[in-house]
Design a protein around this nucleic acid. Structure first.
Lengths: 245, 245
DNA sequence: CCGACTTATGGTCAAGCTCACCTAAATGAC
DNA sequence: GTCATTTAGGTGAGCTTGACCATAAGTCGG
């Protein structure tokens, strides 16, 4: 910050929190990690995991700590990026709380161990939330929507899709990530061509046969590239228009 | 926010501020609005304009207020978007201050009226800052770099370039924006074709002859579109690689 | 072992877009 | 008029895209 002239005016007293939008793809559907609130307000309702910043802690550190404490997920090994700040004065009935939302993306994770803080955490498909069949506490639905749009956009321009996959993975695994997040079917052949043409996206190794049925698929690790050039754009085949966005 | 289980642990006491990266293009160069700091720390050094959030104020409102107070710029009529939060515990020697940076973009603006709070504000070309010939206070250089990268990226995917232009403008005006922000020359003919092909980017009207020399150019207003499909990508002609990014 | 089925992989082809040029048009300076 | 300059518009090779087809390599049920 950097006030120059009129210095007088006490800074407002605000609390700063971090909320997490944690996505994964399980059985072909995009899912988000929610907790059931144990305290008022919104007691018993679903909410994004989160918590207050502590002294001497960066927001990134807060995000990693909450990830561990509330969900039992090891902070490394998954993609974590800042989304944005939410600051409506009345967004939290308890008082003035500004929250900085984070987007986290990981492979289908080992889930909540009972007995830990994470016991209230559970994966929930995203669609019923978007369709307003499940209501979230606070302004968390808005945060979720923003997080989803960010994730969809990042899939176009970066290689984060690989963060959804446990290594090693097949091209089909990767394609299913795109299909689940974008909500559209993609042509397997064309998808494959684009992924393989983009240098540094994926790196081949051996073979496998896991499919209960069908030809075995080649396996890959993540490549070194972070940014996709050219971008892998949605829009192509099916209709995205309905849904929301 | 949404703590569930262990509620005990007092929220850290933090102040929340907003800092502004305000860009414009003047005589072909990208410039940023800086103020000279009047108080310690970093007294006399250049810094981004900014200030503390007040009670009951959203961050957007803070950004608009500071824009007006510190720079004399009317908040409407220019593009304003949130960049991200900066939270290193020691980023400000005065104490724990988390800042949310905003990116603002406007046409070559009427500048600082002496006598107002804005008297310390002045436009500065961006390049000498990137080249470390001018040092900014706090972590403002990092914020500036992030703001620049966001602006460059937004030029690819959205129509904000028109926010740099005073209406009405010519295709050449628009092209100079791209050249100044991206730092690369563009082919006038190809640029024109892409802009005109993208529906909703610009909207034609009459003619004008402002060039001291040369054929008169058609004039345009901003179109209705916000998003560019397809994106207008950099990379094409010259080398971007060096610089920073 | 055989054929049906499933999924992966690979190829083809027309349409569209990009980039690097080239040419024409419109103006002021001389 | 001629020239320099800038806008406007065109052309063609090369690449990418999307739709679609063909083949490969497995499993499964007989």
């Amino acid at each position: 910050m950097s006030k120059t002239v009129h210095q007088r005016r006490p800074p407002a007293s605000v609390a700063v929190a971090v909320d997490l939008v944690i996505f994964t793809v399980r059985d072909g559907r995009l899912q988000v990690l929610l907790i059931e609130r144990g305290n008022t307000p919104y007691r018993g309702q679903a909410a994004l995991p989160g918590g207050f910043v502590r002294d001497g802690e960066t927001l990134d550190a807060t995000a990693r700590r909450e990830l561990r404490e509330e969900t039992g997920v090891s902070a490394d090994s998954l993609h974590l990026e800042q989304l944005r700040a939410y600051s409506e004065p009345d967004r939290d009935p308890r008082g003035r709380i500004i929250t900085i939302a984070y987007l986290a993306i990981g492979p289908d994770l080992p889930m909540p161990q009972a007995g830990t803080d994470a016991s209230a955490a559970h994966w929930t498909p995203v669609s019923p939330i978007l369709d307003r069949q499940i209501a979230l506490a606070f302004d968390h639905e808005e945060i979720l929507r923003d997080g989803l749009e960010r994730a969809r956009s990042q899939l176009e321009h970066t290689t984060i899709a690989t963060a959804f996959c446990r290594e090693p993975f097949t091209i089909a695994d990767l394609r299913q990530i795109y299909e689940a997040v974008w909500g559209v079917p993609l042509d397997p052949s064309n998808f494959r061509r684009k992924v393989l043409k983009t240098k540094g996206f994926v790196k081949p190794i051996g073979e496998r046969r896991l499919p209960d049925i069908g030809r075995p698929a080649a396996l890959f690790h993540r490549g070194l590239a972070e940014i996709l050039t050219p971008p892998l754009m949605r829009s192509g085949t099916a209709s995205i228009s309905r849904e929301e966005m």
